[in-house]
Design a protein around this nucleic acid. Sequence first.
DNA 1: ATCTATTATCGTATATTTGCGATAATAGAT
DNA 2: ATCTATTATCGCAAATATACGATAATAGAT
Lengths: 111, 111
Amino acid sequence: MAFHKKEEFTQKEQELAAFAKAMSHPARIAILKVLAQRNECICGDIVEVLPLAQSTVSQHLKELKNAGLIDGTIDGPRSCYCINWKAFEKFSSEFNFLFNKLKVKNEKACC
Amino acid sequence: MAFHKKEEFTQKEQELAAFAKAMSHPARIAILKVLAQRNECICGDIVEVLPLAQSTVSQHLKELKNAGLIDGTIDGPRSCYCINWKAFEKFSSEFNFLFNKLKVKNEKACC
DNA sequence: ATCTATTATCGTATATTTGCGATAATAGAT
DNA sequence: ATCTATTATCGCAAATATACGATAATAGAT
């Protein structure tokens, strides 16, 4: 009875939601922050920074990668991740398109 | 064993994540879109537009309200919702602060 | 006071997320 | 070939989220 009806919505709506979902956990925000701050790609340093087990961090990384927010290459024993800036560009512009554009029209809300 | 460790993270990280979470479902994106497009506050018109039951829409509205993305006033039998633009301003600026600022520094990723 | 239309809440079933320890997989070092 | 350090995956338990129908709550209309 709880089939997720996500398919019923627009492509754009789904994309935006998927992007937002990838960022919907503080751990993943923290990971993105670390990746953004360091020039070299980080691997297990993230684990040291976060208050989570290695396996959990790995899972969060996987989710971020699946959502396309980060890129990752496996270099044998160590993996290298970095932010996919293009994805953020896209999200940012879609987000602004949806809301900022409309904002001018009706700045004053009714309630 | 699956205690959510959200408290372990920064206030800002949690805020951003909470905001993103509120937008992490296509139905809620769709609701925000409807609210943004109409000048008057919408109540049950949203139910007509979405492919979901009334109770489900009400639940989504509640989540959006709890997250502070929308305001709502109960006018007896009908309720009136509208977007909280200030919240979006805040999110937008925090989001940009976190990522756009850093983007300039290391535009070219390593992987 | 009763009826009506609209919205919120409750209860419930299912699906997904979160987190961890244990274990596998990988490539370099010895 | 074996050892080591690092990362990914598996299996599980608990918490959340999603969706719906049924029911309660609300204020205006009759």
